[in-house]
Design a protein around this nucleic acid. Structure first.
Lengths: 253, 253
DNA sequence: TGAGTGCCTTGATCCGGGTCAAGACCCTGC
DNA sequence: GCAGGGTCTTGACCCGGATCAAGGCACTCA
């Protein structure tokens, strides 16, 4: 594996998932440091996590990271690129469950493959770290913060999916989508203002429950209204306040 | 607490959440036995769980079981009645996250209240067992199956929410809703064929992202088509196959 | 008993967005 | 160069379901 400990520990002070005094650190190598590591167990937590990384793999656009029907045994941390998870049925229709950006965890919800047999596909050139789940679960049983963090990620996904359900109009959905991506990039230290959409219009449409034509039209309308600049898959947010106003969901985003 | 061990252990052989050889048992007192209890740790698992029950509370329709802003400290198992969880914003709009039937766990997703500050409200007369979460988390750290089961429930909720997102037409959504309720009642040993809707039409509409008038109309149409009988809040499924055909989501239900 | 209040149903209208279709703008390969 | 296949955009049409409005039913309370 060859972890370089000196490159770890990049602290992001305004991490939205931090609370009750724990510190959160990101590991620039495996991107998994975001698992909550409480004061005092920093070193132990990080190094234990690193031991769990089974291997680092890289994939080209379109390649599967794990497949429907694979026995659940591992989860993945995205180091670079973007990953989508989806359900695919017998007729080949797909349902996109989520997009995963650098620093995020993929595959936790595949823990129950008998019920939701999903797969994960690279959207561009992707590097991921693979964690064997039994080892992670064991660690979670020894370090409360790790277990807590895993629960946290799952419950966040539930809320996100429910909120998406609630967004009624296409404008709301797209404004929410762009702001969500923006916030997630920003939380990892990237620019939240200008962002690259690694997914196609039809992937976005599928994810949001819209038609791809509608995605095009709404983005155009947003651009005409001065809310953002669109150039192919490059998007620059120019009026975040107005977007937030459109994506008026129950939380403030 | 006064648990009567002799009333526990009702085994449901076709429990959909069972896999890889574990046995699942339901406790008729606290309804929480559904937490997976592997072979060999039955007794230990069940009695340990019972020790966690802090108290049994009962609520009338409309009463809050926990509120937005409560510090997260406990989860609840429904013994009787139905509970809804929701997000409420400053203007009083609500977003219904889910309905919980007897034998199901409420409040797991409130584990992250900083991000999704939800509350839980009784829809009719409701009895719940209250479990202190720290104790449960500690137990989860000692008994792998408990942790596994908690992950399971969370990941199921994610998939459910995502699937609901995908359902495009009102017919699909309502067919899926009725079948889902039916399956969940059946999994707990109730009749899956004739069911009582404890929630109002507008609650259903909110949950499914529809208007309450549409819920009425679609149910009427289903009745006219001979798919089910509707009498106020009593619903009897008469043609489950046809319903499944309408609710053609990616899984088979 | 009747007034008041929710909840549910049904009807009429209208608009957002799905669908179909055509064309533009890339790619990559021959 | 041109052909062929993605992806994205834009236009025209039309249908499903939101919205507005009215009325029915069951329940509570004076």
């Amino acid at each position: 594996m060859g972890h370089d400990e000196t490159r770890n520990g990049r602290v992001t002070p305004h991490n939205p998932i931090a609370d009750d005094g724990d510190e959160y650190k990101f590991c620039s190598t495996c991107a998994f440091g975001a698992v909550c590591v409480g004061r005092g167990v920093d070193k132990i937590g990080l190094s234990e996590l690193h031991c769990l990384v089974e291997h680092v793999g890289s994939y080209r656009a379109g390649e599967s990271i794990f497949r429907t029907g694979d026995r659940f045994g591992a989860i993945f941390a995205v180091r670079s690129g973007t990953v989508k998870t989806r359900l695919v049925d017998m007729e080949g229709r797909e349902l996109i469950l989520g997009f995963y950006l650098p620093g995020e965890l993929v595959g936790l919800n595949a823990i129950h493959p008998e019920i939701y047999p999903c797969d994960a596909v690279a959207l561009d050139t992707v590097e991921v770290c693979r964690f064997l789940f039994p080892a992670l679960a064991t660690l979670a049983m020894r370090i409360p913060q790790v277990q807590k963090e895993l629960f946290r990620r799952l419950s966040k996904d539930i809320g996100d999916a429910s909120l998406r359900n609630q967004e009624s109009s296409a404008d709301e959905r797209l404004a929410g989508f762009v702001l969500d991506l923006s916030a997630r990039y920003a939380a990892r230290g990237f620019s939240g203002q200008s962002l690259h959409l690694s997914m196609s219009r039809s992937d976005i449409a599928n994810y949001l429950g819209l038609a791809s034509e509608t995605v095009s039209r709404v983005l155009r309308r947003f651009q005409d209204g001065g809310l953002l600049e669109v150039d192919g898959r490059e998007v620059t947010i120019t009026d975040a306040a107005a977007l937030r106003d459109i994506a008026k969901n129950l939380l403030h985003r």
